[in-house]
């Protein structure tokens, strides 16, 4: 039971770090910590075989989102 509490506390800590950081690109590693913690919470809440697909879909989707944000930011800076 302690495991899910650890994940919840780490998720809140990383969210506070995201709003404390001013630089846009340096926010993304903390966002990644949030998606790790939420994936762990999803898996720990409901032990069912389909939960693996849900956790993997959430993690890959969140990673793709960070990838798109970082790549668009880099492309937008380089052009002008």
């Amino acid at each position: 039971m302690i495991a899910i509490y650890v994940c919840a506390v780490i998720a809140v800590y990383a969210a506070l770090r995201v709003i404390a950081e001013r630089n846009t690109m340096r926010k993304l590693p903390f966002l990644n910590v949030i998606s790790f913690a939420v994936t762990a919470i999803i898996a720990l809440l409901l032990p069912n075989p389909i939960t693996i697909i849900a956790a993997a879909a959430y993690f890959v989707g969140s990673t793709l989102e960070s990838n798109a944000i970082a790549s668009t930011w880099a492309g937008g800076i380089k052009k002008p």
Binding site: A11, A15, V18, I19, T24, K27, L28, L31, I34, S35, V38, I41, I42, L45, L46, N48, I50, T51, I53, A54, A57, Y58, S62, E65, S66, I69
Partner: peptide, 23 residues
């Protein structure tokens, strides 16, 4: 980035009810 924090907070509520397909 803030919106993706918000979506991350919504997910445990969806999964807790057992709606894995919605998740």
């Amino acid at each position: 980035i803030s919106l993706s924090i918000l979506i991350a907070g919504v997910f445990p509520f969806i999964v807790d009810r057992g709606f894995l397909d919605v998740a």
